[in-house]
């Protein structure tokens, strides 16, 4: 089977691993599952997607290289994610009445790097999200970059970088939770 590199020999600045069909399939299923978990607001399942040190990161600028010590739109570990979930579940989270509802599509999944010994992956993908709340609809598009650890019970997110195309804003309303 030809690898992505064979198909696109010129695309040197966008690295592609020669991942197996099984790996490609497994990681696609993982990303689809994450999208479903968000759309269905399954918060315990959401937390379980991340390693204990895992972070969800949406930089405030495309050129940002690290989340730590920088202004970000999101930069959350388990504890901060638990605050956000606790807030959403509280009956007095006023702006959750009515709640927002989302539909995610994840596509263009490319395995960028694969560690042959551990099976850990770096995976790029694209997303498109429609969000509805209070008679208004918004759309978000962008790219994900997942650093996944591979273990006996599947993949876990060590770091998920999310670059939305409208990163500079302005935002007409806040992002209530992760995109």
């Amino acid at each position: 089977m030809s690898s992505a590199q064979d198909v696109l020999p010129g695309a040197v600045s966008l690295p592609v691993a020669n991942a197996s069909l099984e790996t490609q399939h497994a990681v696609e299923q993982f990303l689809y599952r994450q999208a479903e978990i968000l759309d269905d607001r399954l918060w315990d399942d959401w937390l379980a997607l991340f390693t204990p040190e895992g972070h969800y990161w949406m930089p405030a600028a495309p050129e940002q290289m690290v989340g730590e010590g920088q202004p970000n739109i999101f930069y959350e570990d388990h504890y901060l994610m638990r605050v956000r979930i606790g807030r959403i579940n509280h009956p007095n989270a006023w702006s959750q009445y009515p709640p927002n509802r989302t539909g995610h599509v994840v596509s263009n999944v490319v395995v960028e790097a694969e560690d042959p010994s551990s099976g850990d992956l770096v995976v790029r993908s694209k997303f498109y999200v429609a969000e509805y709340r209070n008679d208004e609809q918004r759309f978000f598009a962008g790219k994900y970059r997942h650093h996944l650890t591979s273990g006996p019970d599947g993949y876990r997110i060590q770091l998920q970088r999310v670059d939305i195309v409208n990163v500079e804003g302005p935002f007409d309303y806040v992002l209530q939770y992760w995109i």
Binding site: I73, S95, Y177
Partner: peptide, 17 residues
């Protein structure tokens, strides 16, 4: 800046509403 003033703020979310 992150917790109160970023676009993902859990504070201003309810103020804006």
């Amino acid at each position: 800046f992150y917790l109160v003033n970023s676009p993902s703020t859990m504070i201003n979310a309810d103020d804006l509403y």
